[in-house]
Write a protein that binds this DNA or RNA. Structure first.
Lengths: 214, 214
DNA sequence: CCAAAAAAAATGAGCGTTCGTTTTACTCAA
DNA sequence: TTGAGTAAAACGAACGCTCATTTTTTTTGG
């Protein structure tokens, strides 16, 4: 029965999760052994099993923490005053600021979600949150007359998710992928898709989008 | 050494690959045991090891076959008379006609390509083939004046790949994903992106694209 | 044509290893 | 001294893989 100070307990749990995340990103969930994680965390098996009752539990813990953080980022989007600015911030955080191993873990979680019930529920919950957030957001923009209602909010959200998935997959799998070069073109696709009423003009002082060098 | 009729040998190898593909799609490369595959193929371990020298070799064999088939499909695209018709055929084959486990395997191969050198080379080779095929194709269409050169062929190819990746990922990971509902909207995005000169009119007798029923 | 001999291929118990997990022995602050 | 917390050793199960043996296929002498 644990009696260590709750703060210390939580810190240690996080420490183990950090180590596990690194290992899982390096080798995948099922090619990583508990010993690997113990070594990475400088913790004995017995100690690890105080905080996680099984490997599956540890995987679920990783998924839980990762997806929660992801959801928290998106939650900000819904309250943002400027949709495009907020979206760029999220994209920048995920694709530029985050370590590569974060994207690797997201990939791992996505794949695992198709086979592991617990991870599946966590993943699906966040995915649906993101999807419905976009839909609500687009609906509001349509209602406010900020974008031309050429498509339903649901359709827009669907296509948006697909494009996001594409960037997500390629950034994780293709080491040669040049995100900086691709973003402007994708942004223009999104712009044409949303077709906002202010269109070309009036946006922040930025060079005309969609003209990637080369 | 081996003297079984070459046809029989190849057939047996294919049979084992079929079984392995099923198992790998079901549980992933590293959560599938050789025994699982032996059971699925109704073959003893010893017999399996006649055709594949190790589990890694078997994984490479799966990647090799799968990516080769994928590449063969895309090779047809380059020679097609109508780009859009050929593209639809490929999309239909992959997203509709193929069994779900094929998409699961593609996902698995993509992930494995980031960690396994052999699989990585196979995957990257095909991916680069697809990318450069698109670029060549778009360049030709620009040169022929079939699409308006608003973007470079390279930029078009990049965005195209990202959208393809998005459809690929979502179709494999999101069981609730409605491909039929999404395709028309994605097609319209592509249409706007490519901006062909004949535009709205003149295409095969089909209902106006891009209007997904809610 | 057809056994018998030779060659090839398949078998499956079992190898050594490593897995996820549990138990045991110990440390050390209270 | 005690008991919460940790480290290390050890557990049975399952892993990838091997090999002595059996079964199947092909070759061949009469």
């Amino acid at each position: 029965m644990p009696k260590l100070k709750p703060d210390t307990q939580r810190a240690r749990r996080e420490h183990i999760l950090d180590a596990a995340e690194l290992c899982f990103a390096r080798s995948g969930f099922h090619a990583t052994s508990m010993q690997d994680i113990c070594r990475e965390a400088s913790v004995s098996p017995g100690a690890l099993y105080v905080y996680f009752s099984s490997k599956e539990d540890l995987i679920a813990g990783i998924a839980e923490r990762n997806r929660q953080e992801f959801q928290a980022r998106f939650a900000q989007l819904a309250q943002a005053t400027d949709f495009f600015v907020a979206l760029e911030a999220i994209g920048n955080a995920y694709f530029v600021e985050d370590e590569p191993h974060c994207r690797q873990i997201c990939l791992e979680i996505g794949l695992e979600s198709t086979r592991n019930t617990t991870v599946g529920e966590i993943h699906r919950s966040v995915d649906e949150f993101v999807g419905s957030s976009f839909e609500t957001l687009f609906q509001r923009m349509i209602d406010d007359g900020r974008i031309r209602p050429a498509h339903s909010a649901a359709a827009l959200a669907r296509v948006f998710m697909v494009i996001g998935d594409g960037l997500f997959w390629r950034s994780a799998v293709d080491r040669k992928f040049d995100m900086a070069k691709t973003i402007p073109d994708v942004v223009e696709v999104i712009r044409q898709l949303l077709n906002p009423v202010e269109d070309v003009a009036s946006r922040r002082p930025t060079k005309p989008l969609g003209e990637a060098a080369e």
